[in-house]
């Protein structure tokens, strides 16, 4: 671990200023500190945002505003979330462990970095960690890597669960910048594809700090979060799907699906939602949805299985969401 400067932010402006000067925000620290110990992350300075008033879940219009510092445990336990946005509670509870969820925050969770094995191994080239050094996962062991939207520079996945549910819910990230500036970005547009700049996971600019996540009005319908993993708990997804599906008189009135562990970002494709909407559920329809999802999907060898697995899990989720629970 490299020595680093530490300051505690006194207010949001202070945090944004320090962050603009290169300091990394630290919230729960469950991801950042691990990476710093391994020298995968080597920030010169940390700005501790934990004393900022960014906690609490409040009503916001017809929806909810979840503070950046709300712990994953608290979020998943919130009565309104469990009642009106169960897909979010389930996605959070499908991730990590009790201990980690107690420390992990909403913003930290969104910004968690890839679990690519080579990203973690500082002896190996990695464009995300050391831009321009190459991608060791291509041609290496890439069981957990992307089948969608990868580039020649990076085939890593975004590993988290919570953000997949937030994409299905079409939530918005509220971001504060320097000099009191603020902007809102849909979660669906928050994470990036790697392109030729895999060092950038998301659209945050230097000096920007996440202040909250906004949930729109409760969408109703059936909420499903399905995560396939190598063991029952404490493992990242091999494939995950968040689905919010509303039925009306035997047809799909609305569908919003997002996919985890397939790409550098939680995958959302409006065309899939559109394809399903207004249709009567059928295996042929579900296959068509899977075709659309997997159009252009490419395996890297060890992760080839994700292609058939995503298809199967999509079918399972849609069958469950539309009523047939076999």
């Amino acid at each position: 671990m490299r020595p680093f400067a530490y300051s505690r932010a006194t207010d949001l402006d202070h945090a944004a200023r320090l962050a603009g000067d290169g300091a990394r925000p630290i919230a729960g620290g469950t991801n950042l500190l691990d990476l710093m110990k391994l020298e995968v992350e080597t920030p010169d300075a940390l700005v501790d945002i934990n004393r900022l008033p960014l906690g609490g879940i409040e009503t916001h219009g017809d929806g909810l505003r979840i503070g950046a510092l709300v712990s994953n445990s608290a979020c998943a336990a919130d009565e309104r979330i469990r009642r009106d946005y169960p897909v979010l509670a389930r996605a959070i509870l499908a991730g990590a462990t009790f201990q980690l969820r107690n420390m992990a925050t909403t913003a930290g969770n969104l910004c968690q970095r890839t679990r690519c094995y080579y990203f973690y191994n500082t002896d190996m080239p990695c464009n995300k960690r050391a831009p321009g050094s190459g991608c060791s996962a291509i041609g290496g062991f890439n069981r957990i890597h992307a089948i969608l939207g990868a580039s020649d520079a990076c085939i890593a996945t975004y590993p988290g669960d919570m953000a997949v549910a937030l994409c299905a819910l079409d939530a918005t990230v509220e971001i504060a910048g320097r000099d009191g500036q603020a902007r809102s970005v849909p979660v669906r547009a928050f994470h990036r594809l790697p392109g030729d700049a895999p060092e950038r996971d998301n659209i945050l600019e230097p000096g920007e700090v996440i202040t909250a996540v906004m949930l729109p009005a409760p969408p109703g319908g059936k909420h499903i979060y399905r995560k396939v993993r190598d063991r029952s708990s404490y493992a990242f997804a091999l494939v995950s799907i968040a689905a919010v599906v509303r039925m009306d008189r035997g047809a799909i009135a609305s569908a919003s699906l997002a996919f985890g562990a397939l790409a550098h970002k939680p995958w959302h494709d409006t065309r899939i939602d559109d394809l399903l909407t207004g249709q009567a559920p059928s295996d042929a329809l579900f296959d068509a949805a899977a075709d659309r999802l997997l159009e252009g999907a490419t395996g890297q060898g060890a992760n080839d299985f994700k292609i058939p697995m995503a298809r199967r899990i999509l079918k399972a989720v849609l069958r469950e969401a539309t009523g047939d629970a076999t």
Binding site: Y118, N121, D123, F141, S232, Y234
Partner: peptide, 28 residues
């Protein structure tokens, strides 16, 4: 669940920690 995977090109263990070397957890 358990397997230590070696990188076939370089000979290092790809999953040298308890996050990725999957021993059974209580739920298993």
């Amino acid at each position: 669940t358990e397997e230590n995977i070696f990188d076939k090109r370089h000979g290092h263990i790809v999953n040298p920690d308890l996050a990725e070397y999957h021993i059974p957890v209580s739920l298993d």
